[in-house]
């Protein structure tokens, strides 16, 4: 799976648009980091990664409005692919990779934060209208005003 394929699949899985997942001017390279994590030897069987790639290629050849339904049926409904897809969601929203061999969160010794930057860029903060604990890009004094839940990002292009 290349970066563009991964970014397109990630948009369907997260509900976030292109500019959030793989911006045209990309300063963070977050998608690239998550893709590299996905392909870290030992984390996901190579055959499973190939199946995920093939399945996404099949879906992406269909009309764009059907992506969500197809991902739900062909990926989330597939017992081999669903855990990997969920892990991709976890990475995007939490910046964490969960050990696939056990239920998420039950293997703290094998789970890991992808990077400090991944934690900072986790989509959960944006979704909540909040910022990561210990890091904020807000204007000084932002805490004096109520958090604002940002509008939904543009739909998938």
């Amino acid at each position: 799976m290349n970066l563009e394929q991964f970014a397109a699949l990630s948009q369907v899985l997260t509900g976030y648009g292109q500019e959030a997942i793989l911006p045209k001017l990309d300063t963070q390279h977050q998608a690239a980091e998550y893709l590299a994590t996905l392909y870290t030897p030992g984390l996901v069987p190579v055959a499973t990664l190939q199946l995920l790639t093939d399945t996404w290629n099949t879906i992406s050849a269909m009309p764009q409005p059907t992506y969500e339904m197809q991902v739900k049926e062909q990926i989330m409904g597939n017992t081999e692919l669903a855990p990997v897809a969920k892990n991709i969601i976890y990475m995007w929203f939490l910046g964490i990779w969960y050990d696939l061999t056990v239920p998420p969160g039950t293997s703290p010794n094998k789970d890991f934060v992808v990077s400090a930057q991944a934690y900072q860029n986790s989509l959960v903060w944006d979704t909540m209208g909040a910022h990561p604990m210990g890091y904020s890009e807000g204007v000084f004094g932002y805490w004096n005003t109520p958090p604002v839940i940002p509008p939904l990002h543009p739909p998938i292009q």
């Binding site: 994590t37 969920k86 969601i89 976890y90 939490l94 969160g105 992808v114 959960v124």
Partner: peptide, 20 residues
């Protein structure tokens, strides 16, 4: 999905942190 399962375990101190 993320909040329900993940946030329970988002205690950074207890997780390994992969530098890059």
């Amino acid at each position: 999905l993320a909040v329900g399962i993940g946030l329970t375990y988002i205690s950074i101190g207890s997780l390994g942190c992969k530098g890059r």
